[in-house]
């Protein structure tokens, strides 16, 4: 039984410009008695999510839409427990997998096979589970002999296939996918779709951020629209509401 509950979650994070990350400016600030503080210590506080509450349970498929910088990735990371909320509570039950940034956590010097082990272990599988899942990942990615080559020789579409295959092979109860899902070619999109639907069918939570209305409509029953860190659930998804990059699938 998977569950993902947000109770009045606010996430604020500091943005450090090169000046505030530098120790020299800290020291200068000390020695000048804070006189140039306004210039030296510019840590801007960004409120990425503002008072967000919702409840997701088994079988919920959610599409996240919003402009660039609306907070989609921050919301996904907060759902995943990567970002801790500044205030409010996140309650998460169930095995989690994320596909957020292409190539995240992979070691490009290692071969595809070695990265399957690496990613699998990082996502919480045991070595035995990884071994058992490898044949199926092999066939899903269709990468064939490329799996014996270092990942640095892969195209981004190939890296995507591998990441998606590993992330879904851990049989996640909660799967969070960021927008780069569209990188693969048409054949991969079809396979990924079938695999997604199978996962969703097994009563899991699926959250997917995208600018592509077709993908959202296909996968998701609920749609959350983010604007300036505020989440609003919308019922219908007229295409013009999506704003940027319609149909690009990036």
């Amino acid at each position: 039984m998977a569950k993902l509950v947000f109770e009045n979650v606010t996430v604020q994070y500091p943005i450090y410009n090169s000046r505030s990350v530098s120790l020299r400016n800290r020291l200068v600030r000390l020695s000048t008695g804070g006189r140039i503080e306004a210039e030296a210590g510019q840590v801007s506080l960004v409120t990425a999510l503002k008072d967000v509450s919702f409840t997701l349970k088994d079988g919920d498929t959610v599409g996240l839409v919003g402009h660039n910088g609306a907070g989609k990735s921050t919301l996904l990371r907060t759902m995943a427990g990567i970002y801790a909320p500044t205030s409010g509570r996140v309650l998460r039950e169930g095995r989690l997998a994320t596909v957020l940034e292409i190539g995240a956590g992979m070691d490009t010097e290692l071969t595809g096979y070695e990265n399957i082990v690496r990613m699998g272990l990082m996502m919480g599988m045991t070595s035995a589970e990884v071994r058992a899942a490898t044949p199926e990942i092999e066939s899903f990615t269709d990468l064939g002999d490329f799996l014996q080559l270092p990942v640095r020789t892969y195209s981004s579409g190939m890296v995507m296939r591998l990441m998606f295959a590993v992330a879904t092979s851990i049989k996640p109860e909660i799967l969070l996918v960021d927008e780069m899902f569209g990188t693969g070619d048409a054949a991969f999109q079809e396979k990924a779709k079938a695999r997604m639907l199978a996962l969703i069918g097994a009563a899991r939570i699926f959250v997917f951020a995208s600018h592509a209305p077709t993908l959202i409509n296909e996968f998701c029953q609920r749609v959350f629209r983010l604007e300036h860190g505020v989440v609003e659930e919308v019922t219908s998804l007229p295409e013009e509401n999506l704003g940027l990059s319609i149909g690009e699938g990036v």
Partner: peptide
């Protein structure tokens, strides 16, 4: 950074 920002470890 790319592990920290993407996986919950």
């Amino acid at each position: 950074a790319n592990v920290i920002r993407n996986l919950q470890l």
